[in-house]
């Protein structure tokens, strides 16, 4: 990737963050913190990594994405809108009665959503099922899933991890958005999950640790995952909860609280300034 490509990705990620702020503001609820921490990962997956066609969301040979930490869908919805799966305006009625965009991803209502998720720990199992189906059908599509670091406290994540390595699902990439915070506080204080790298290694995964906001590192980790044979890959992405909006960064209180009008305007202005600066560099 050259610097202009990276700049473009940064602009897209800032737009996705704007979408997450817009959506949660209009919804008067939702989860901005984790939406912002995972925004760069979503951006890279949908703009560089995955084989998808917004014109044909049900394309059989597409790569699949499962947002196991389903509550962080606002920034994913923004990416899907930017990709053209649906109108950006849908974000202004996020979580409203009759909306296409539900509080947690709904594969029946929303084009581009490959699996309904929201109950933590379940998405990773579904991703295993999709990866196994690809193997059975001798198809070359890959399956990506993003988990929260609080989410790995769920036992089902480790049931799925055992299944993935036992069945040699090398077409599966598990990305943990390690923003370090969960509802009740810091992950290390609530229910320590470390050493997470050693845990995934012990469960038979290839493990790559990266900065989840660095597109070069995201790229190299995903490129490496494609070369790994006979086992799944876990990418442990260190991130900042609330990334991109100064007053939301590293604040546990922004896990599941929507911005009010003032905060919405301040956050949007910050992100607009970032976009303007990035565009100025072009």
């Amino acid at each position: 990737m050259d610097s202009s490509e990276i700049r473009q990705l940064k602009i897209l990620a800032a737009k996705a963050r704007k979408g997450a702020i817009l959506g949660t503001y209009h919804a008067k609820s939702g989860h901005p913190g984790g939406s912002l921490s995972a925004a760069d990962i979503f951006t890279y997956l949908y703009y560089k990594e995955m084989r998808v066609d917004p014109e044909n969301p049900q394309w059989e040979d597409r790569d699949r994405f499962v947002l196991s930490k389903g509550h962080c869908c606002p920034s994913l919805y923004a990416i899907l809108a930017l990709k053209g799966y649906f109108d950006w305006e849908e974000l202004t009625v996020l979580r409203h009665v009759g909306a296409m965009l539900q509080g947690h991803p709904d594969m029946k209502r929303t084009p581009g959503i490959d699996m309904s998720t929201g109950s933590l720990g379940q998405g990773v199992s579904a991703a295993c099922g999709m990866a196994l189906a690809a193997k059975l059908d001798e198809k070359d599509y890959r399956v990506y899933t993003v988990l929260g670091d609080g989410e790995v406290e769920e036992g089902q994540v480790w049931e799925a991890a055992m299944f993935a390595s036992h069945n040699k699902l090398d077409n599966l990439v598990v990305i943990v958005d390690q923003n370090g915070l969960q509802i009740d506080g810091a992950v290390e204080d609530v229910a320590g999950i470390e050493p997470l790298d050693k845990k995934f290694e012990a469960f038979g995964f290839e493990v790559v640790k990266i900065d989840g906001h660095d597109f070069e590192q995201i790229k190299s980790a995903l490129d490496k995952a494609k070369t790994v044979k006979g086992k799944p890959t876990a990418i442990l992405a260190k991130t900042v909860k609330g990334k991109g909006v100064s007053f939301m960064e590293n604040q546990v209180g922004w896990h599941g609280v929507a911005p009010n009008k003032e905060q919405y305007e301040a956050a949007t202005a910050e992100l607009d300034a970032q976009i303007k600066e990035l565009e100025g560099e072009c």
């Binding site: 720990g121 099922g129 990866a131 189906a133 059975l136 059908d137 049931e159 799925a160 055992m162 299944f163």
Partner: peptide, 24 residues
């Protein structure tokens, strides 16, 4: 076409769901 998921029923149902989403 048979997969033993081990003693992990929650994961088994989730895997089955993913399989169904992929057309099985």
């Amino acid at each position: 076409r048979f997969f033993d998921c081990g003693i992990a029923e929650g994961n088994m149902i989730g895997v089955a769901a993913g399989m169904a989403a992929a057309g099985k």
